[in-house]
Design a protein around this nucleic acid. Structure first.
Length: 479
DNA sequence: ATGTCC
């Protein structure tokens, strides 16, 4: 593939053949020309109605149809919405909850606290029953209300947590009726559960501050303990994606020649303004709200677990949501295109919204410095908090990277972990880890991931987000 | 990511 370097960390794939726009890849070095995910960047550029670029963030890698780390905005009047541009785990995302606790107060009780979290937050692939199974009207409330539903029922660090989530913790065009009975059945008893794979609930210490102005606005103090939660929409979101793909894949010819000519069946999509497109958008937003509610319920469970195991009142713990971001979502957002504001549909698949300073969609306490951009790393090293920029608004539809990205496949990682005790290795470095599955720790060990410091360095240099703080893990629970 | 194959 012809790659042209157009800036220090930015590479362009010229629009060729059926590509409607060029590809743009943010990367520290030249992308490997034989990387199949590069072809996926080019494939996404065929999407009907795509605007300006098919984008890839520096943590990009192969995914279903779209690369993970991909961003594509379309004109909703003529463009397409694609389930593969969102991913199976709809609104997989991450939140950080700050506390008034100092790491030195936590360390002597760390084992007990992690054990309490592990008891109170179900983990693992089939985890269920964090809270009683939801009746139909309650599930409707979750699907329509997102984090607000959970906070209103007392699952919260602070009552106004949802105001510090992306979109206020609720996508407005969600339609619970667009979610199938089967998807509902899978979600009914899974709210408040973590899941498996790279999902985690962590206790972190604020290890370093890079931007004192933004860190102060975000409430990040050196040595303070923060809770970080990475999870998504569990079986409900998976089911919505699966059913949507099954419905759309055979229909590409019906939607016209641009659809029939798409270079990969995994790019199955529908016109945003068609019945099929509207139905997916409504179901996907409902699943996204389930994920917002899921992280909000786990926030409540974690706060109670910390208070119980440390003998603190909630006031003494002083927890509140810093921010909550979607990593897998398609959203109608207003962006400047050719100098004029217009509504576009932005697919972010393994990418994070990164709105800049002054944007009214950034919560008031953070508006002067830009939206918090939460980038988890791996369980043995660190995670980062960044802030969105004007440059991201101009160049990437207000988007940034979402994590480290895998270096080794799960199989390769397991092979490397054979005969080792990953939890003991982490404990020797002061990190307490409890995990349900015996395989997960091997698949998720640090060596399986790229160094997220290198990924966020690209975002900082390219000006798409600026570094604010580094978090380091003290305790982790996993699936 | 996922009742990792209804």
């Amino acid at each position: 593939m012809k790659l042209r370097r157009i800036d220090e960390d930015l590479w362009e794939l010229p629009a060729e053949g059926g590509m409607k726009v060029p590809g743009r890849i943010y990367a520290a070095g030249p992308p490997a020309p034989d990387d199949p995910s590069l072809q996926q960047v080019a494939n996404v550029a065929h999407l009907p109605g795509i605007l300006r670029f098919s984008l890839a963030m520096p943590d990009y890698h192969w995914g279903y149809g779209f690369p993970i780390g991909g961003v594509a905005a379309v004109d909703p009047e003529i463009g397409a919405i694609s389930p593969g541009g969102v991913g199976y785990d709809i609104n997989c995302g991450v939140r950080v909850v700050t506390t008034a606790l100092h790491e030195e107060e936590l360390r002597p009780r760390l084992r007990q606290v992690v054990a309490q979290l592990f008891r109170d937050v179900p983990t693992g692939v089939g985890a269920s029953r964090a809270i009683p199974a939801l009746a139909d009207d309650e599930l409707d409330g979750v699907l329509a209300g997102g984090a607000r539903w959970a906070a209103a029922r007392g699952f919260a660090a602070a009552p106004d947590d949802p105001s510090r989530c992306e979109e206020g913790g609720r996508l407005p065009q969600a339609d619970p009726a667009a979610v199938s009975d089967r998807a509902r059945a899978r979600g009914r008893d899974q709210l408040g559960t973590l899941g498996s794979g790279n999902h985690f609930l962590e206790l972190d210490r604020v290890a370093e501050i890079y931007a004192p102005d933004a860190a102060a606005a975000f409430g990040l103090l050196p040595g303070a303990v923060a809770i970080q939660i990475h999870s998504g929409s569990r079986g409900l979101g998976y089911q919505v994606c699966d059913e949507s793909l099954a419905a759309l894949t055979p229909r590409m010819r019906d939607f016209g020649p641009d659809y029939a000519a798409l270079p990969d069946p995994q790019l199955a999509c529908a016109p945003v303004r068609s019945d099929a497109g509207r139905r997916y958008l409504a179901a996907m937003q409902a699943a996204a709200n389930f994920a917002f509610a899921n992280r909000q319920v786990m926030t409540g469970l974690a706060v109670r677990a910390l208070c119980r195991s440390l003998g603190l009142s909630e006031g003494e713990l002083g927890a509140r949501v810093l921010y909550d971001v979607c990593h897998n979502v398609a959203k109608l957002e207003t962006h400047a295109v050719d100098g004029a504001p217009r509504e576009v549909l932005v697919h972010r698949k393994g990418a994070t919204r990164a709105f800049g300073p002054g944007d009214p969609r950034v919560p008031a306490p953070y508006r002067a410095v830009g939206q918090p951009v939460l980038i988890p790393g791996d369980m043995g090293r660190y995670s980062y908090v960044l802030a969105g920029t004007d440059r991201a608004m101009r160049d990437t539809f207000g988007s940034s990277c979402h994590g480290a990205g895998r270096l080794l496949s799960r199989g390769q990682a397991l092979k490397l972990a054979r005969g080792r005790s990953i939890d003991r290795e982490l404990a020797a470095r002061g990190i307490e880890v409890l995990s349900r599955g015996r395989k997960t720790l091997g698949e998720e060990m640090s060596e399986a991931y790229k160094d997220v410091a290198q990924v966020v360095a690209v975002m900082h240099r390219a000006g798409l987000s600026r570094l604010v703080a580094r978090l380091e893990p003290l305790g982790v629970i996993k699936g």
